[in-house]
Design a protein around this nucleic acid. Structure first.
Lengths: 360, 360
DNA sequence: ACCGGAAGTTAAAACGCTTACTATGATCCG
DNA sequence: CGGATCATAGTAAGCGTTTTAACTTCCGGT
């Protein structure tokens, strides 16, 4: 059986537009036109062609289609990892909007490695993606910026478009769309929330100089402290990545070293907050009874642990990225090159006002 | 330099292999062969070509490449949603293995709609994906099975391959790879775990007849009850979908109606368990103090809420799907058509033994 | 009766690449 | 030293679409 199928091979080649044309008794050009729909055609012809398509179970070859002229109808998204809720939600937005626009979505992951990111961009360029969306946090290394700038130019030259999603612009002369959300503003707001509750010693979890996301969040934290005339203690800025276990580690190490010298914690994201919360409980401290805790992102773990946090419009970020990138009237004066989406606090049950005078 | 290269052509058309050939002073065939690496070539020629590629910043056109013979180098994955941890983790596995095999990954989402799923498979067929991986739970509707069977055959005919990942086979004559994990076994094991702790009235959360995943999990639950000679009370099977808020709803409605008539809960997945836990706490019941709680999946929410659950090898599922699908020695006798990956219990802190005689 | 043009259709030229098949020297054996 | 062998490189024929330009009809208007 299998052997027969294999030897039939030349006969069993997939149906092409030529087969459809022959079956319907028209030319390939007509079939192509009718299928792409963008051309007048007699109803009778149309009927014949559609029937042939159904009978032969014909599906167009996307490669040939892409080659012959029409754009490849695909958008590319590059993320660190698909399992991280942050990226997943942005990806979901991209997916949704891509589907609406009739494009499909190719995904690349980098594991946070700039080298792999660059390589993946090249891959997407090969693939003729209509736009390449880069999501998230990255090292603001100079050599890297330059290289990415080159790629942005290369993409633009090829009629594609680089989109930076949730990360700062590369430079004024780089042809890239930037869709950001207000990291600093959100961090400022939630730090103020803690300050209003009377907290003065707020531990920041996840400082990581040179990484764009933590950098802008810590900036909001510092600005809020300054505006409230609370002295800034660098010792209250713990260094670490944005992973759950890092949140756990940072708090554990701190508590192992002695009793807490803070009354509240601002974790640079919800994952870190979840880790921190676990470490606190392991040391017999409750949230918010003993320590107040806030995060950033408003992603799944937040609701589960009743965390007050900053809501980030992840899906909208992705949708906007696609929508703007595909908005092909490039010359249209109204088309923004830089979008900043707002963030806002979600109050749950992880912050308690500090009783009595709380000055250090 | 750049200006010259651009003005050489009438417009800013992207660099082609012909440009590279001209620049290097060789034929296109030579460039093609050197780039694909699958051919002997003199080191001198190779050097010239590589330099030209670098100088012109040439990247091959994947569409043309796919058209001209070489396979399209892409695998397709179709999931309900990218944000659900379950799908995300499988997708991660697919991504990883695809990257290892040098393929890229195109993703489609269906939102759980069978109609959209079918449409997306067609889209992937157009795209000439080397395999199409379908993940997860689905209604076992007969008409749907038949249509999917047709698609499986169409894909096979086109040299592609349908892979069913975490869902049951379509039928004996359907050319599809099936990668499952042991839902029933896992459910049996964790139910036994509760039974061994003395629980006799175990509430099952998430019955949904006709949906493959809940069906097979509840089957394990029932089998364990039967084997332990515990009477099976259909009233202890609450109906609902696999979402967090549904877990919350099912438990809330139950507790609103009267005091708990159960001592433990088996939620059909971790998300539902998280929702259930929240509802319990809102009613002043603690886990595991008052009620024991277990889930299924071992995904992020589980660790945060200290949930005893069944570990599912999600990533491995995705990796295996890609690996097997691309294993193109179809005739190789050893190539399995059906793989069943094992599951095992992860014990955390959400189950407490029941004291004293616990017979109903 | 003739022309201009609309409507519908077609032949054929791309699109950028891979890959038989073919050509060219250089090397080697008898 | 003639022809066979080998290592490279080139020629050209597709791959399955889209699209341009051209070609029929078939009108109504003059």
């Amino acid at each position: 059986m299998v052997r027969r199928a294999a030897s039939d091979d030349e006969g069993r080649r997939p149906t092409t537009i030529r087969d459809v044309a022959a079956h319907a008794g028209v030319s390939v050009a007509t079939v192509s036109r009718i299928l792409s729909g963008s051309y007048p055609s007699a109803p009778a012809t149309r009927g014949k062609v559609m029937r042939a398509v159904r009978e032969l179970d014909y599906v167009a070859n996307a490669n040939a289609r892409g080659l012959a002229g029409a754009s490849s109808r695909s958008v590319a998204i590059i993320v660190n990892s698909v399992v991280s809720p942050h990226y997943a939600h942005v990806a979901q937005g991209v997916q949704t909007q891509a589907a609406i626009e009739g494009k499909l979505c190719i995904v690349g992951t980098t594991g946070g490695d700039p080298e792999r990111e660059l390589a993946t961009v090249q891959l997407m360029r090969q693939e003729q993606a209509e736009c390449v969306i880069l999501v998230g946090n990255v090292v603001a290394d100079e050599a890297y910026r330059e290289r990415m700038g080159d790629y942005a130019r290369a993409l633009a030259l090829a009629g594609s478009q680089l989109v930076l999603c949730g990360r700062p612009a590369l430079g004024p002369d780089v042809p890239a769309l930037v869709i950001e959300y207000d990291n600093t503003g959100g961090a400022y707001a939630i730090t103020s929330h803690l300050l209003s509750a009377g907290h003065r010693r707020i531990l920041f979890l996840g400082r990581r100089d040179g990484h764009t996301t933590p950098d802008s969040r810590i900036a909001g934290y510092r600005a809020a402290l300054a505006d409230h005339h609370v002295p800034h203690d660098p010792a209250l800025e713990a260094e670490g990545t944005m992973e759950r276990r890092e949140g756990h580690r940072m708090v554990r190490e701190r508590l192992d070293a002695g009793p807490p010298d803070f009354t509240a914690i601002f974790a640079c994201n919800d994952l870190v907050a979840a880790g921190a919360r676990q470490a606190l409980r392991e040391h017999g401290l409750s949230v918010p009874g003993d320590v107040s805790l806030v995060g950033f992102d408003d992603l799944p773990p937040a609701a589960d642990i009743d965390l007050t946090t900053v809501h980030v419009p992840h899906e909208e970020l992705g949708r906007t990225a696609v929508r703007l990138a595909l908005d092909r009237e490039r010359d249209r004066p109204g088309r923004p090159e830089h979008v900043l989406l707002g963030t806002h606090i979600i109050v749950r049950d992880s912050v308690r006002p500090l009783r009595g005078p709380a000055l250090p």
